[in-house]
Design a binder for these strands. Structure first.
Length: 879
RNA sequence: GGUCGCUUAGCUCAGUUGGGAGAGCGCCUGCCUUACAAGCAGGAUGUCAUAGGUUCAAGUCCUAUAGUGACCACCA
């Protein structure tokens, strides 16, 4: 035996070595085992363009804690990893890279371009995976998936075809969000509305056949080129007489009708609205109601098209200014007003999106969301914390049809084919040889790809082999919990739920555990532009992964944001150092690996710590089951530091230092037993250091990863000893307090006299004599049963059921001591008062639980006794 | 406009079903005591935002108000 640990744990050396060993041994790899219950988490796939940030670190740590706990509890625990192809992000990145080399994607063509992207993915796409490994995440890497791998492609095609046949996917010409920068459609969820300081321009149109005008306001004058009507509220007496007449749009000289529609609010602006169905969602609807023509004025890059020769090719913002000028020249400009509004921008490139009419593919949502709503209402899907269920419902209940086609090359290509001859649409996983309608052979595949989220939505089951009816799918699916941040509920969670219900008839997971964001120390979001981001890898390098993980989980509850502080990491590193050193201490004293256990030998102190550990095990297990990871780690932290290190180890030292002490062996056994179990509870949070320590105190090579989770054990419930030791602790604390107040240096030993008439107390003290010598620096402990035997030159401290005396020392100031005792007296009096008041309250006595009343009564006696003692002391010193 | 958070010690935050207010950091005092100064011992600090209500009992439940933040919708 006799192993030794270095003075400090060295994370940078140990972590990689340990993780490598775990991988070599295949501890995280999971095979179907019908004898074991599965526990499955499918990890949210990070983008291949991504770098590990604090959000990932937090997200993966939570999942790893759950998985490691379940693994130790005997579940077949699978944490399934993978990455997302991130269509737009990746495509933009590669386009930029090629641009630097002077290559345009249009020039090299689709196939060649995709080769470049795959190359890029091979080089950079796995970076983030390696970073997850640094976090110590216990994934089954042999199952790693990619949203664009062939299996997932199969799943995507299957879903597309099924939904098309069912009529849930359709092609339609509708107003969509268009990004002129990325030149692709985007979904509603990808549009960010940001506050903007803009203008309201007021113009007027001459009403034909009169000499009157209609004045209206717009924030986007360039869309005037596409006006096909002007609208007023049907009940607006100001304008009623004009309904049915026409105005002429200058510049394009288009005659358009004045129509009435409820959509127009009378008291907003001038109560007159220009209608541009091709460039505004509301106008589009008005247009449909009134059968208005749709005139598109813009090219895909946001420039003006040939709707008007004079403006052709101008950028939308240049056109805006020119139109304002033109209206001024024509005398039809009224005024310009500063206003605050919001503009929709593309979340990826921040470019202002343009609503445009496009023929695109859509998923019909109204029917598909119904089961997702139903399951939630039936409490089959649980959000933690539950308030996030509202966000989920809000999205489902207000979902518009989902535009899924993207004008990008990197992604799942839409499995739709067009016959050049008869324009038939054929949806199929294989390219048809000839048209099913006309037999023509000029067949082309749709050029577009699918929204990234279309494949992410299938992630919980596609990764397990769906659409094949695989054994994995039957065994591991549905998964147990999804862990994600709140900002992605509407993007992803809702889509996974309705997709899973539609395709597999099952919820993809039972619980959705939501966490918050990691902000900087001033509470700001970490962002590239602010440059305030903290790289988790830097933290790991400085303090180690375990310290980072503890920092992210501790002092925080589900769903809430947290701030990152370096100080917090340091505190956690210090805690781990504490655990490390406690182990060193035990190893110093441990001659043989396995001290023998016999229950009869256990001393009260041993029983106390074992009993405390026992409660801790139960608490922590329940807390983790309820996803209260922050509270659980706090309990572990306090137990190890306060109960185990500060008290138990200190209490046990005299027994260890005396090799002839008959209780020495059981002390070592208890030390080791409690340490190992604490380590196990700590392991999911701090996997590396716990593994290192676990191995150092075992003779045989073993791993904590596959060790058994500690179990609550009725054998180790010791209520009496818990109470007794608490009495000792209180006494020791009081003595320490008194010594500090009296400025007695620790090295100076002082006689301690206990006076008590309670046999129980004196017995406890007798049993614990050594604690007073070591913990309270007593030279000797004398137990008496009568105050009269105490001389006047003693200071005292009162405990429940007795008083402890120490000889006066030269520096003691009687006045000061009396002051202290009087303070004590006041405190006790107010306590006695409180308890008496409570117990004389009829309502309390009749309605409060019996247990509580008993406890209060006990306190009443205790306080009264103690107060009596204090009064006695005051009397003694006042003589 | 709608929904939802948050407000607890100087700072950052816990406080899981209502039952005498907690941690870490910081601050003050004393200690290099043979595991640990990344440490040990002791100490000070709170009208739990405000006002009502429910209850024997409220930081915890309900209502309103204020401050603050997030999300959603609208913005001709």
């Amino acid at each position: 035996m006799k192993k030794e640990l270095d003075k400090n744990f060295n994370p940078s050396e140990a972590e990689d070595r340990i993780y490598k060993n775990w991988l070599n041994k295949g501890y995280f790899n999971v095979k179907i085992d019908k004898a074991k219950k599965p526990y499955t988490i499918v990890m949210p796939p990070p983008n291949i363009t991504g770098q590990l940030h604090m959000g990932h670190a937090l997200n993966s740590t939570i999942q790893d804690i759950l998985i490691r706990t379940k693994r130790m509890q005997g579940y077949n625990a699978l944490l399934l990893p993978g990455t997302d192809h991130a269509s737009i992000s990746t495509e933009v990145k590669v386009v930029e890279k090629l641009a630097k080399e002077g290559i345009k994607k249009e020039d090299i063509g689709r196939e060649e371009f995709l080769k470049h992207v795959w190359d890029w993915k091979e080089t950079y796409g796995n970076k983030i995976v390696e970073q997850f490994k640094k976090m110590g995440i216990s994934c089954d890497w042999s199952r790693q998936r990619f949203t664009l791998d062939s299996g997932l492609n199969k799943a995507v095609e299957e879903v597309f075809i099924k939904l098309y046949k069912k009529g849930y996917i359709y092609k339609g010409k509708k107003l969509v969000n268009w990004c002129p920068q990325c030149k692709t459609t985007i979904s509603d969820a990808e549009v960010n509305y940001i506050d903007n300081e803009g203008y309201f321009w007021y113009f007027k149109y001459p009403i034909n056949g009169t000499d009157e005008f209609l004045t209206f306001a717009t924030t986007r004058p360039e869309t005037i080129l596409g006006d096909t009507s002007i609208a007023v509220n049907p009940n607006d007496i100001r304008y009623k007489k004009f309904i049915g007449m026409t105005v002429t749009v200058p510049i394009v000289n288009r005659v358009i009708p004045i129509i009435a529609d409820d959509y127009v609010e009378m008291d907003f602006g001038t109560g007159v609205v220009k209608i541009t169905p091709a460039h505004d969602p509301n106008d589009f609807e008005v247009g449909e109601r009134h059968n208005l023509p749709i005139i598109n004025v813009m090219n895909d890059d946001g420039s003006i098209n040939d709707v008007c020769e004079a403006y052709k090719g101008l950028d939308r913002y240049e056109a805006r200014e020119k139109i304002v000028e033109e209206f001024k020249n024509l005398g039809l400009f009224v005024k310009k007003e500063e206003i605050k509004n919001s503009v929709g921008t593309h979340e990826r490139c921040n470019c202002v999106i343009e609503p445009l009419i496009k023929e695109q593919w859509f998923v019909k949502m109204d029917e598909m969301v119904k089961p997702a709503i139903e399951e939630f209402k039936n409490n089959n899907l649980r959000f933690i914390p539950d308030r996030f269920g509202k966000i989920y419902m809000n999205w489902l209940e207000n979902m518009h049809d989902w535009c899924i086609s993207r004008q990008l090359w990197w992604g799942h290509r839409i499995p739709a084919y067009y016959c050049d001859d008869c324009h038939e649409i054929i949806v199929s996983s294989e390219k048809p040889i000839k048209c099913s309608k006309c037999g023509g052979t000029n067949i082309k595949q749709d050029e577009d790809t699918l929204d990234t989220w279309f494949s992410s939505a299938l992630w919980p089951f596609s990764t397990l082999g769906w659409p094949e009816n695989t054994e994995d799918l039957n065994y591991f699916y549905p998964t147990d919990v999804l862990v994600t941040a709140y900002d992605i509920i509407f993007f992803w969670v809702v889509r996974m739920v309705f997709s899973a219900l539609e395709q597999t008839n099952q919820l993809p997971f039972k619980d959705v555990l939501i966490h918050g964001l990691v902000r900087d120390s001033e509470g700001r979001k970490m962002s590239k532009s602010l440059g305030n981001g903290i790289n988790p890898l830097d933290v790991i390098e400085k303090y180690g992964t375990d310290a980072l993980r503890l920092t992210l989980i501790g002092g925080n509850s589900p769903g809430n944001d947290q701030r990152f502080y370096w100080e917090k990491v340091e505190v956690n590193r210090n805690f781990l150092n504490k655990v490390w050193n406690a182990t060193r201490f035990i190893l110093m004293n441990l001659e043989e690996a396995s001290p023998k256990y016999s229950k009869e030998d256990l001393t009260p102190a041993d029983k106390w710590i074992l009993s405390k550990l026992n409660s801790l095990i139960m608490e922590v297990t329940n807390l983790i089951d309820n996803y209260e990871l922050g509270i659980a780690i706090q309990k572990i932290y306090d137990f190890i530091w306060e109960y185990y290190c500060d008290w138990y180890i200190e209490m046990v030292k005299p027994r260890l230092y005396n090799k002839n002490d008959p209780t020495r062996n059981i002390a070592l056994w208890t030390l080791k037993e409690v340490l190992i179990n604490s380590l196990k509870l700590l392991h999911p949070y701090a996997p590396f250091i716990t593994e290192e320590i676990f191995n150092s105190i075992q003779d045989e090579e073993d791993t904590i990863v596959l060790s058994n989770w500690p179990k609550y054990n009725k054998e180790f419930v010791f209520e009496k000893e818990e109470k007794d030791i608490e009495i000792i602790k209180t006494a020791v604390k009081n003595i320490r307090y008194l010594r500090a107040e009296m400025n007695v240096v620790p090295s100076r030993k002082v006689k301690t006299i206990l006076v008590t008439q309670e046999e129980n107390i004196s017995n406890i003290f007798k049993d614990s004599e050594s604690f007073f010598k070591t913990l309270a620096y007593s030279s000797e402990l004398i137990i008496k049963d009568n105050n009269d035997q105490i001389d006047n030159d003693y200071v005292s401290v009162v405990i429940s059921g007795g008083a402890i005396y120490m000889p006066f020392l030269e520096l003691v100031d009687i006045e000061k001591e009396l002051l202290r005792l009087n303070k004590e007296k006041e405190k006790l009096e107010s306590e006695v008062n409180r308890v008496n008041k409570k117990l004389s309250n009829e309502g309390f006595v009749s309605k409060a639980p019996q247990k509580l009343i008993e406890a209060e009564k006990e306190k009443q006696i205790k306080y009264e006794k103690t107060l009596e003692e204090v009064l006695e002391q005051i009397k003694r010193l006042s003589k």
